[in-house]
Design a binder for these strands. Structure first.
Lengths: 142, 142
DNA sequence: ATGTTTGCAAATAGTTTGCATCCAG
DNA sequence: CTGGATGCAAACTATTTGCAAACAT
């Protein structure tokens, strides 16, 4: 944890970000939780001991953290829901710049085994490999 | 396409859903697009030839389709953003009932190769296996 | 000192809900 | 006929933006 915080300050400095009490608190709270919290959850926890941080700051800070690679956005992203009618087993590539999602097929991926400890604990309904990166048109246009 | 539409009607009937022009149009539009459209995109396309369908109907219909397994929600889900500070390579299990996301580690998954045709076309930045299903506590509580 | 960061308030975007009307079965 | 489906409007939730004040460097 100490280790993590030192690294945190280094990474901020590398990216020219100031170390503010809010940023430190938000990052610490994120490390403490293993539940992949949302901005609102983080905000509620911080308010208890630091009552005047605003939700906007939490939102902005988390997005800044994501931009410098300190954290990752894992679920939802506030963007609208998107729907996939393709019933064949398939996998996704998603462009982080334009949001495009491309289906692809791969037998090796389809054949992946579910780890035994997960199969015992959870009822697994679907399995999918998600790749992220920059798509061809975004690469060419900038 | 004809085939798909017949199957569509069968699946609706199996689940006791009425076949309405709106539902048919929404499903057809979804099949036509390979871009994993959002409710708003579908609504805009349908409006051109069927001006009085409401966005709410599109939203409700798509969610109904997802509930009966006809389509899948692939990105965002309108839920708040969630953040992951874990820098180690890892994978996710997500409970479709309570939304909990659990990290897990797996060397076989980490070692997966990116298919050559994708590596050529796109710049791949991250790779992750996403499992979905019902978690232990949700399984026990209902 | 100064330019970034913050907090507040207002605006925006997506989704959901209540309810009266409509229509598929 | 009748209950499920739809359209409209309003409510709600999450996020973003503009701006002045505060603060880290």
């Amino acid at each position: 944890m100490e280790q993590d915080l030192r690294t945190f300050e280094e990474i901020c400095r590398e990216h020219g970000l100031k170390i503010t009490p809010q940023r430190t608190a938000i990052y610490q709270e994120l490390l403490k939780s293993n539940a992949h919290p949302s901005a609102i959850m983080i905000h509620q926890r911080i308010k208890k001991y630091y009552p005047n941080v605003s939700l906007d700051t939490v939102n902005r800070t988390l997005i800044t953290f994501a931009e410098i690679g300190l954290v990752r956005i894992v679920e939802g992203r506030g963007d609208p829901k998107r729907f996939d009618p393709n019933p064949r087993p398939h996998h996704h590539f998603r462009c982080i710049r334009c949001g495009k999602i491309v289906d692809f097929y791969n037998e090796e991926y389809d054949a992946l085994e579910i780890p035994a400890e997960l199969k015992e604990k959870f009822l697994i309904i679907s399995k999918r490999v998600n790749l992220e990166g920059i798509c061809d048109s975004c690469r060419n246009s900038r």
